[in-house]
Simulated assay, not measured.
Amino acid sequence: MKLKHAINLHKGLTAFVVLGMMAIYQNFQTGPWIYLALHGTYGFLWLLKDRIYPDKQWEEELPLPQGIVMFLVLGAYWVAPWLLISRGVEVPPALLALAVSCNLFGCMLHYTADAQKHFTLKYRRGLITEGFFARCRNTNYLGEILIYLGFAILPMHPVPFLILAGFVLGIFVPNMRKKDQSLSRYPEFADYQAQSGLVWPQLWAANKPSAVTEK
Rank of each mutant, 00 (worst) to 15 (best):
Q29C: 01
Y25T: 03
H110I: 03
F161G: 07
V212E: 11
V159S: 07
V17N: 03
N175I: 08
V199F: 13
F16E: 03
P174L: 09
W82Y: 15
L72K: 00
N8A: 10
F167P: 06
Q57E: 06
Y111R: 04
G170Q: 08
M176I: 12
P92K: 08
Y77H: 13
L84V: 11
F161H: 05
C136F: 13
I52A: 14
E188S: 07
V168T: 13
G20R: 08
K117L: 07
A165W: 12
M21L: 15
K122D: 05
G67Q: 06
K208R: 13
L83D: 02
T213S: 15
F161S: 02
G31M: 06
A37S: 02
K56A: 13
A194H: 08
L36N: 00
F16I: 12
K4Q: 08
N207T: 08
K208G: 03
V199M: 14
R137Y: 03
T213E: 11
M22I: 02
N8K: 04
L48P: 00
S210F: 12
A115V: 05
E130I: 10
P63E: 09
A113K: 00
A37R: 00
D191A: 14
P81G: 02
L203V: 05
P92E: 08
K11N: 05
V73R: 13
S196N: 09
Y77F: 15
K56R: 12
I153D: 00
G75L: 12
G170R: 06
R185G: 01
K178R: 14
T120D: 07
V212I: 15
S210L: 15
F119E: 00
L98R: 01
P54M: 10
W78K: 04
L62P: 01
V69R: 11
P187T: 09
S184W: 07
E188I: 09
Y77Q: 12
A99D: 07
Y25P: 02
L183N: 03
A97K: 09
F28V: 06
E188G: 07
L64V: 14
K122E: 12
F132R: 08
E144V: 03
T129H: 10
A190W: 09
